[in-house]
Write a protein that binds this DNA or RNA. Structure first.
Length: 825
RNA sequence: GGGCGAGUGGCGGAAUUGGUAUACGCGGUGGACUUAAAAUCCACUGGUCUCAACAACCUUGAGGGUUCGAGUCCCUCCUUGCCCACCA
């Protein structure tokens, strides 16, 4: 017998699978389809890490299981190739990003191959390929033509040290993650996508798909829908009106001031001459603060009085108008009424000695006293007081009645606000898809005609962003200068590129038809493959990539371009694998586990895959334990020995020597295992699927080495089933042992998933627990379906029970069929 | 501050509708094989009491509750993880 050595078998089978193309997904195949999608990687120079390995291995387990279960499985892989790390790498090493991407993808392919993934490589692509980004550009133009892509002046993050515009994701805690400089804001004209138009749809759509509840609630949270009212406050002795958004219109009687964001457009108009200087000083001081400084001063709420007053529409009271930089210009109307029932407002008003009264009291009398004495700021719902005709109403009733009252007078409207902002879609960087727009003096921004797509990213000498914040593309005059597609006059190309979220917003659709040069994907193929059945990815993409791609898809659905309203029928997120020391893996800490190193070290891909499946539930963050590999290797080795032993010395014995009890044990073990593993994979309980296989193997192993004789056919069929159950997890050793055991020419991965024989699932005899007052006292072995009477008699005859129950009165007997009997004394 | 989770041996973690808590694996101890080591195999491995075995009692972050019976359900508290955060 050869020793189990992964090196001898893994590369051999990987090559064979590639040559035979056994993992191809077939368009329009009559079998039911199953699309198993894992997030495609960013091909960085560092190669794959354990996080990739977890995601792709578990995706592969499901893909293989579904394939064996009769599905036409599509398990694709591509590369999210545009983005900053590659650009930075190219700048630093003075090589082209195209070359860097090429090199990195070669490494990735090699590494992914060594994991033994059942990917359909014929459908692979990278987002930086012009044949791909032609369609990213085309899809962008559909947004543009629908009025959902627009330009606006917005503040971008600007690093004054690097002299470059930054993407949000490069700003960590208000600093540029690379150089740690405090980030400033710079006003630039930018492209935005109107994701806010889809805010409600993005929430509602979640109820039609099967997402992990945590993921759905994070998206809902991020979108941040809040219902309230927009209320009109007339400025005293002026024709100016201020619109104020509030979710607490029930507290309007206690409005003690109006507070505007410093950037509010009406600031200039309402500031009295006598207050101009103070306001100007305040604006300068608040503008010079970076985001992080504003956050640092959470408790110190600064502000300035404008000199003007507003009229509270509910009671005609005159209240002062202030400016304060804790009010955000981007949310609601950029104005609030200051109110003692809001903790931030209360602090602000106290700081600036603005007189405030309460209008809502808690139901709890002790609490109410504290509110009245000013000891407590009450921000919850309660009962209205000091509120004229609305006194005595509960907050929720008052909200609708006061709103209606003001709506009737045309002083308020019902309004829904979202935290979600429009998606800033411009990047002033080189390594991204050029935005396919031409700016014409007469016609403004014009779409590049379809037949001129793709707008190919030109090669440049210098990939660095320019000092004025423009993309390096702006330096190439020959590329920038073009003609207007509408009038033919000289015009200039847009020089911004798209964010790296663009290519990943629709990539799953391209897997359905990766070569198409007429359309982003053929409709018939979309109809066949949509939607993605299961999407597995990192939790960190919940509010960016996952939300963005749902938005794109919903838009495409509205345009009639895709058949389903949602892209992903189900979404799960895998947990992070930490370093062995329990902290996040990082090069500087030296706790990085390199999966390819593990494979090369001699444990092999199968032991690694099993370890990943076994170490913890897939969605749990857990520390990597290198020693677990010893255990998973031993497990595979035991199976190797068992199968080879059986094949090499199966000895035929005469019928009378067979041990029926042992045979039954083998059959019940294997059939229970089939049920358990099938169920566990369906529920993604990979760790218990493995432990069940270990347990079963231990039983089979012992039986094999006992002197009990078991029929060859029973061993043969049981081992075949066992290998099939293992195949999704450890595809190489399963394939090898399958061929050793069966001499078949067909791959185990194309064989049928085993079905349990129910007749072996139930036992004739079962263990029944005897409890006294709920406490375990003894076990009984009884036939299945024994009646209460029989069990009770048997229990009372039990020596131990008899001793305890002597001289005691049984008040009650609780009987659970086939499980337990409990005497209450 | 808000939202969503999680607390079980030395460690990662099991535990159907509430029904023998600690499966499986790691680590540890003892043993077999070996000149020796590695590998492999066997036995033991939550705590207290006990020379030991049997038995008994205790044990799922803390405290209370519901129940014949609670890791599981309810309440209060503590600890901790992730995401968001001056969002009116």
């Amino acid at each position: 017998m050869l020793r189990y050595n992964p090196k001898n078998i893994e590369v051999k089978w990987q090559k064979k699978w590639q040559d035979d193309k056994i993992y191809l997904a077939i368009d329009f195949d009559p079998r039911p389809k199953y699309v198993m999608l894992t997030e495609f990687p960013y091909p960085s120079g560092a190669g794959i890490h354990v996080g990739h390995t977890r995601e792709y291995t578990l995706g592969d387990v499901i893909a293989r299981y579904k394939r064996m279960s009769g599905f036409n499985v599509l398990f694709p892989m591509g590369y999210d190739a545009f983005g900053l790390p590659t650009e930075n790498y190219a700048i630093k090493n003075k090589i082209s990003p195209i070359k860097a991407t090429d090199d990195n993808i070669k490494i990735f392919e090699q590494q992914l191959l060594s994991l033994g993934l059942s990917i359909d490589w014929d459908r692979s692509f990278r987002t930086s390929d012009p044949n791909y980004y032609k369609w990213t550009q085309w899809l962008f133009l559909q947004f543009f033509k629908a009025g959902l892509a627009y330009q606006d002046e917005t503040y971008i993050n600007w690093c004054p040290f690097c002299k470059t515009g930054l993407a949000n994701e490069e700003v960590v805690n208000g600093r540029h993650e690379r150089c740690d400089t405090l980030v400033e804001k710079k006003l630039l004209k930018q492209w935005l996508l109107k994701i806010t138009d889809y805010a409600d749809r993005l929430i509602d759509g979640l109820s039609t798909v099967d997402y992990l509840p945590k993921i759905a609630s994070q998206q809902i949270n991020w979108i941040g829908r809040s219902e309230g009212a927009e209320i009109i406050f007339q400025v005293d002795e002026s024709d100016v009106q201020i619109k104020v958004f509030s979710t607490r219109i029930d507290t309007i009687y206690s409005a003690a001031c109006i507070i505007l964001a410093p950037e509010h457009p009406l600031v200039d108009k309402i500031t009295l001459i006598t207050h101009k200087q103070a306001v100007k000083d305040y604006l300068i001081s608040s503008q010079s603060k970076s985001d992080i400084e504003r956050q640092d001063e959470k408790r110190d709420k600064t502000g300035v009085f404008t000199g003007s007053y507003a009229i509270n529409p509910i009671n005609q009271e005159k209240i002062p108008i202030w400016l304060a930089d804790f009010i955000l210009v981007g949310y609601g109307t950029g104005a609030v009424f200051g109110d003692i029932h809001d903790e931030r407002d209360a602090v602000f008003m106290e700081n600036h000695h603005i007189k405030a009264t309460y209008s809502v009291l808690p139901k709890d009398k002790e609490k109410a006293k504290k509110v009245m004495s000013g000891e407590l700021v009450f921000s919850g719902d309660g009962i209205l007081v000091n509120s004229g005709q609305f006194d005595g109403l509960t907050s929720s009733v008052a909200r609708s009645e006061i709103l209606q009252f003001l709506v009737d007078k045309k002083l308020a409207i019902k309004k829904v606000n979202f935290k979600l902002r429009d998606w800033i879609f411009s990047r002033q960087h080189y390594w991204g898809e050029p935005i396919p727009i031409i700016h014409c003096v007469d016609h403004g921004p014009v779409a590049v005609p379809d037949d001129q797509l793709p707008v190919v990213l030109p090669s440049v000498d210098n990939y660095e962003p320019t000092e004025n914040g423009q993309s390096p593309l702006s330096m190439i005059d020959s590329w920038v200068n073009t003609v207007c597609p509408t009038c033919g006059k000289p015009a200039k190309r847009e020089t911004d590129t798209m964010p790296n979220w663009a290519g990943s917003s629709w990539y799953y659709l391209r897997y359905f038809d990766p070569q198409n040069d007429q359309k982003f994907a053929d409709r018939k193929k979309l109809d066949y493959w949509q939607a993605v059945d299961l999407y597995l990815g990192g939790m960190e993409h919940t509010t960016l990539h996952l939300l963005y791609s749902r938005f794109w898809h919903q838009f495409l659905f509205d345009q009639g371009l895709v058949p389903t309203p949602e892209p992903y029928a189900a979404r799960r997120g895998q947990g992070i694998i930490l370093g062995p020391d329990g902290t996040k893996m990082s090069k500087s800490k030296g706790n990085v586990i390199d999966p390819t190193e593990v494979i090369r070290s001699g444990y092999g891909a199968d032991s690694l895959r099993i370890a990943i499946a076994f170490i913890a539930p897939y969605d749990l963050t857990t520390a990597w334990n290198p020693e677990i590999l010893g255990g998973t290797y031993r497990f595979l080795n035991r199976l190797w020995v068992l199968v080879h032993n059986f094949v090499e010395k199966q000895n035929y014995v005469i019928a009378s020597e067979f041990d029926e009890l042992s045979e039954k044990k083998v059959l019940s073990t294997i059939n229970k295992l089939i049920t358990k593993v099938t169920d566990d994979i369906e529920k993604m309980n990979f760790n218990t699927a493995i432990s069940a296989q270990m347990e079963a193997l231990n039983i089979l192993y012992k039986l094999n080495y006992s002197d009990k004789k078991i029929k060859v056919e029973i061993w043969q069929s049981s081992l075949e089933s066992f290998i099939k159950l293992l195949a999704p997890f450890a595809p190489h050793i399963a394939e090898e042992l399958w061929h050793v055991l069966t001499n078949s020419t067909q791959s185990v991965h194309l064989s049928d998933w085993p079905k349990a024989d129910v007749s072996y699932l139930t036992e004739d005899k079962i263990t029944i627990v005897v409890q006294i007052n709920g406490k375990w006292r003894a076990n009984l072995t009884m036939p299945v379906n024994s009646q209460e009477k029989e069990v009770k008699n048997e229990a009372l005859r039990h020596e131990k029970i008899a001793i305890i129950l002597k001289d005691k009165t049984i008040n009650r007997v609780i009987f659970v069929s086939d499980k337990l009997i409990n005497f209450v004394i």
